[in-house]
Design a protein around this nucleic acid. Sequence first.
DNA 1: CACGATTCAGTTGTGCACAACTCAATCGCG
DNA 2: CGCGATTGAGTTGTGCACAACTGAATCGTG
Lengths: 160, 160
Amino acid sequence: METLDTVPDEDFLRLDHQICFSLHAATRAFNGVYREALKELGLTYPQYLVMLVLWEHGELPVKGIGERLRLDSGTLSPLLKRLEAAGYVERRRSPEDERSVTVRPTGAGTALKEKALGVPRRIAAATGLPLEDIRDLRERLDALAVRLDGVDPDALGSCT
Amino acid sequence: METLDTVPDEDFLRLDHQICFSLHAATRAFNGVYREALKELGLTYPQYLVMLVLWEHGELPVKGIGERLRLDSGTLSPLLKRLEAAGYVERRRSPEDERSVTVRPTGAGTALKEKALGVPRRIAAATGLPLEDIRDLRERLDALAVRLDGVDPDALGSCT
DNA sequence: CACGATTCAGTTGTGCACAACTCAATCGCG
DNA sequence: CGCGATTGAGTTGTGCACAACTGAATCGTG
């Protein structure tokens, strides 16, 4: 049987054997398609993700958004500032905890949801995959991400 | 049977139904793992991809690297400049075509390959997936990227 | 209550992705 | 041959990702 151990290093190093490259390429291909689809909404893809969680939850602290999207404040702070400048969200320091900032969609931000409704369907159609396959792929990717997030950094250093 | 058409818009809009998010998250998880593994080589992940194609091909014009990695000169030019500053590659205008710049690994760049040999294996091990599954996932992602790259931009505009 | 530890948002700096552009070299057609 | 179109690398500007850091608010334990 073919296992990790029976494949020579050289083969592992060849670009076309590496899943990471495919993942990278697929992500950028998706980004390109989303860029096109989101153009009419005036949103970038990460901004769209933020609006998605806000539409679902009504309002969230920055931290809550970050947990759901696995993004830190260094990424979210400027992104939210741009969304605020575009008039789609409001930011307010929480009265209960002055450290926290609550983000919620404005009227315009909520209205945007109607225009966004068709987007994921069109993307799904663009993949040309049946819903079942999309789900299956999604589950594999999620499982992969969970595994990779849990990897011990020391295990990746040199082969000691 | 459940098809694209029998699922309501709302469900499509829910974050946890969307493959793009999973892809995004998986890519960032991978990047994190690679960042760790590549730290000892002093390479970022995209720089590592460039070195991979150079190790395979010996030398390539900037355009050739871009074709293999689907990156344009706007991304590659500064990246290659950094690789050159690090002493891993050389850039020379091609004598046959003065527009073209040939990139090839220096001695240090070639030597780096030995240190890199173990990296993809450690990454593969970190995924915890059997080789067969990794390959299967890779093929699906490649097929997806090809489809998405071929999408007609007009098909993504508003639902007209 | 006091004070060190923690939490949260934000800033800074580096690097990647990509659109739009510049400019020189080359190509190709009349 | 001459000249407009194309090609290839590079630059500029915008936005995201993330590490490292700041500073204020809050928490927890003595």
